[in-house]
Design a protein around this nucleic acid. Structure first.
Length: 362
DNA sequence: AAATCGGGGCG
DNA sequence: CGCCCAGATTT
């Protein structure tokens, strides 16, 4: 048989993989909830949750989500409100809506079976190049690269890449590296290990280089610039907006909520009626009367607080508007609910709204 | 107070 | 394709 002479010395990618895999065997995380009973469905849900959320935050959400929706078909049958309910507090609610959409697609068009190619996965809502790679590698043991925030940080330091990683060219370079290093053997462990190294050793701020398996090879460490990488995007000051949120309280038990449009901030969540910022009782009375016909008992201001988004600060002035008690049936308009504080509906709430409502219960 | 994080959507 | 947008947590 004709064959090329066998290489006796492993190349640099193989050396790298061996470092990563033996680090994983000794230090990698192997007991995360989604690493037990590993199915494509569980891996997918975890990857979506982890897109913008740290492991420790995601764990309780993952447990509750899987408890309620053990299979993708059960998720597909759920209402969007219930999916958003389980997502309340996690943020980026588009992720939850896309998760639901994708479950419906897979239940209907793939007979409940997760597709296992890069192209099919990337065509599903909420799954891009990196998440598709993670599902292929972790759930299917298929050779596929990921480039999440952790891997980006590891690679920029390893190669001392000083350009901002958001540059198109730099991102492409990083993807090329990620692909070059990805092994065909034990790719699930490798992928988990890279995320673990990024999350526990190669952290932003001060990396723990002395404990790192790449200590000898890391360019940034050699140059003493690990701490300064990846280069930050030039920061922009974000503006502050002010609003007043109206808390209509009826019979000391019900609070009026309105469903927000499905796109934009808090898309699809149930929020408090909003009005232009004011602290004047007179204008609050006017705004309240425009929104509701019931007679007002009294109005008082809550304590103003701040909620920050990626691109603006929101100063929230809560206003409690107690309504005169009502005995008859309480009517709800379309896109409106009287949220029962004692028996909360299973709907999604923005984090500050949830905080406000919990405060009322005390 | 600043930084973070992957993907969707729009022009 | 380039650019803008989304939320809560950590540092």
């Amino acid at each position: 048989m004709l064959s090329k002479p066998h290489k006796t010395r492993s190349n640099s990618a193989e050396k790298f993989q061996n470092l990563v895999l033996s680090w994983f065997d000794q230090h990698g995380r192997k007991n995360l909830p989604w690493q037990q009973n590993k199915t494509p469905y569980r891996v997918w849900v975890s990857e979506i949750m982890l897109q913008q959320t740290q492991v420790s935050t995601a764990i309780p959400y993952f447990e509750r989500f899987l408890q309620r929706f053990p299979t993708i078909n059960q998720l597909a049958k759920a209402t969007e409100d219930e999916v958003l309910h389980l997502w309340t507090g996690l943020g980026y609610y588009n992720r939850a809506r896309n998760l639901h959409k994708t479950a419906k697609i897979i239940a209907a068009s793939h007979s409940g079976q997760f597709p296992a190619t890069q192209l099919l996965l990337e065509n599903l809502p909420g799954i891009g190049r990196s998440t598709a790679g993670a599902i292929l590698a972790i759930a299917f043991e298929k050779k596929a690269a990921i480039l999440d925030g952790n891997v980006k940080r590891v690679l920029t330091r390893l190669h001392a890449i000083t350009e901002w990683p958001g540059e198109k060219k730099t991102t492409e370079t990083l993807w090329k590296m990620a692909e070059k290093y990805t092994p065909s053997h034990r790719v699930a462990d490798y992928t988990q290990a890279m995320m673990d190294i990024g999350a526990t050793l190669c952290v932003r701020g001060t990396p723990r280089c002395t404990e790192c398996p790449f200590q000898k090879t890391c360019k940034a460490h050699q140059l003493g610039i690990a701490k300064t990488l990846p280069k930050k995007k030039v920061s922009v000051k974000i503006p502050t907006r002010q609003i007043t949120l109206l808390i209509f309280v009826l019979n000391n038990q019900y609070v009026l909520l309105e469903k927000r449009p499905s796109s934009g901030i808090w898309g699809g969540l149930w929020s408090l009626p909003e009005t232009a910022y004011t602290q004047s009782t007179d204008s609050l009375r006017k705004a309240a009367r425009a929104l509701i016909k019931r007679p007002i008992d009294k109005i008082r201001l809550g304590e103003q607080f701040r909620h920050t988004f990626s691109h603006f600060h929101l100063e929230i002035q809560p206003a409690l508007i107690s309504l005169k008690p009502s005995r008859g049936k309480i009517m709800e308009a379309d896109q409106q609910i009287w949220y029962n504080l004692l028996q909360p509906d299973t709907v999604g709430l923005p984090a500050p709204v949830k905080t406000l409502l919990m405060g009322l219960n005390k």
